[in-house]
Write a protein that binds this DNA or RNA. Structure first.
Length: 492
DNA sequence: TATGACGAAAGCGCGGCCAA
DNA sequence: TTGGCCGCGCTTTCGTCATA
């Protein structure tokens, strides 16, 4: 059935020329105002779509389908994302139902292609069983077609819908008083009407609700997971009453096998990439080389201090979970009582103590402080106070002007890679609670760094390795998450 | 005397067990 | 089957010793 396009606007177009590909056969280009869709998600047996596409020769709507859909990603939903991104007019939006697995895949090609054409406006988690035919967790992904390649990206509206206005069992009884999805829809409208322009540095509560947050666009990059629950702390998730619903046995099996299939694919590809990157010359660098590294400890900040002088500066201590902070301290008190400023630059930190925290390595953002049981490592020499300018004048901004494009002091060992290499050295050293890793011990450590022919650090390879390691860490988190879900599922 | 390193213990969370 | 209590061990804090 085809609705004939009117002279001015195409309202609906239903295509059925090719039984397998359907609408995919005629991808519209820069032509559509809004897309609301729940594309089919099939990963198993989806190769017939690829094969069918290869069969079609010649151009459709001015493109060769084979090339047009060659954007990476698994399954039919990846084809539809390509279709959608291409179809939108600049500045126009699409709202797409996608399975969680698609958002969390670590293969980055599909994501980077999507990001080159679109901004992510929203990522909203729907409750399990929102769709009665699948127990797969699903999301609403809101995209906006970019107008120009270097347009800045707005923060991403993240939401957790626990309810959708009807019960999640087969009866689907309306529950108008219990409808997070409606609340999120209204909040999203407000976010769009407010211009989406707010500048934020980390996940930030939105309005005064627990179910929505704004998250900086750079946390939705091609190497990031695009799900949202990771932006809610454990406590916040408990407060939201997120609790596993009963799952059908068959759906449980489907879900688990689907999840593990995805994990295996991602693991294999990460492994291959890592092997390729590490197959090259490596050099050894000692942290005791003070012309190259800074190693120092944090400051004593007690709980009483936090109670008496609350403020804005996040305080990191030796917690086992990476993102837990001890509290937020007042910057003025920090300066007066301790004589320190919040960290000017990001750093790599090593936990010096704690039975299971000892030896954990984290990346910490600038503007925070560490307690005295945290060792701070940076890949540049400790700045000398009062650097004197050539003409003998004092210098405050002299040093600042010597910072690189990334806003950091000159360095050739990437911060992210430093964290990876340190973690590896420490893991190989088998450090125990008894062998605490204070500054002196950390200073004795030695790291392996990819180098070029001339023996100097190869920054590009470092960055690439750090990126793959991050992917592997995320896969590990997903395995952990899957395991938690499997354990907590009540099977019906 | 200031700073760093470390040991020790408070106290919290979790699992196990028992009673309703 | 569920709720509550108990005890153990781990996590995290902080007092104190060592060192410059």
């Amino acid at each position: 059935m085809v609705f004939e396009p009117t002279a001015s606007t195409i309202t609906f177009l239903l295509l059925n020329e090719n039984e397998t590909l359907g609408a995919l056969l005629q991808p519209p280009r820069d032509a559509v105002d809004v897309i609301l869709t729940n594309p089919p998600y099939v990963t198993q047996g989806s190769s017939i779509y690829r094969r069918e596409i290869e069969q079609i020769s010649g151009a459709r709507n001015g493109v060769s389908l084979d090339e047009y859909y060659d954007t990476g990603g698994l399954g039919v939903e990846a084809l539809f994302l390509r279709y959608i991104a291409g179809a939108l007019k600049p500045g126009r939006r699409a709202f797409i139902i996608v399975p969680l697995g698609l958002l969390n895949r670590t293969a980055s090609r599909m994501k980077s292609n999507l990001l080159s054409e679109c901004n992510i406006l929203a990522s909203i988690a729907l409750p399990r069983n929102a769709f009665f035919n699948t127990a797969q967790p699903t999301y609403i992904l809101a995209l906006e077609k970019r107008r120009v390649p270097n347009q800045s990206r707005p923060p991403v509206f993240c939401g957790i819908a626990r309810s959708i206005g009807e019960t999640l069992d087969y009866e689907r009884v309306p529950t108008p008083d219990d409808n997070d999805l409606m609340d999120l829809a209204n909040l999203f409208i407000r976010y769009v009407e407010d211009g989406m322009g707010e500048v934020i540095s980390g996940p930030t509560a939105y309005a005064d609700t627990q179910i929505a947050k704004l998250v900086p666009a750079d946390m939705f990059g091609k190497d990031d997971r695009w799900d949202v629950t990771r932006h809610w702390t454990d406590e916040e998730q408990v407060a939201l009453g997120q609790r596993a619903e009963a799952v059908e046995r068959g759906a449980f099996v489907d879900q688990v096998s689907q999840t593990f299939r995805e994990l295996l694919t991602d693991l294999d590809s990460a492994r291959a990439e890592l092997d390729a990157l590490e197959d090259g010359p490596m050099g050894t660098f000692a942290l005791s080389d003070s012309s190259r590294f800074t190693v120092r400890s944090g400051v004593r900040i007690r709980n009483v201090d936090l109670r008496d002088h609350p403020g804005e500066v996040p305080v990191y201590s030796v917690f086992t979970r990476a993102n837990v902070i001890k509290g937020r301290i007042d910057a003025d008190w920090l300066r007066e009582a301790k004589g320190v400023e919040p960290e000017e630059f990001p750093s790599v930190t090593v936990m010096a103590t704690g039975a299971s925290a000892v030896g954990l390595v984290h990346l910490r953002e600038a503007g925070s402080v560490m307690t005295d049981d945290v060792v701070i490592v940076q890949p540049w020499p400790t700045e000398e106070p009062g650097v004197i300018d050539v003409d003998g004048s004092d210098t405050g901004d002299n040093r600042l002007s010597s910072l690189g494009d990334d806003g950091l002091p000159a360095h050739d060992i990437d911060l992210g890679y430093l964290a990876v290499a340190l973690a590896r050295t420490i893991a190989q050293g088998g450090y125990m609670y008894e062998a605490k890793l204070y500054v002196r011990r950390v200073t004795q450590l030695v790291i392996e760094v990819p180098v070029r022919e001339d023996g100097r650090p190869d920054t590009e390879r470092q960055v690439a390795i750090a990126r793959v390691v991050k992917r592997i860490d995320e896969i590990r988190d997903r395995i952990d998450e899957a395991n938690r879900w499997i354990r907590s599922s009540r099977l019906a």
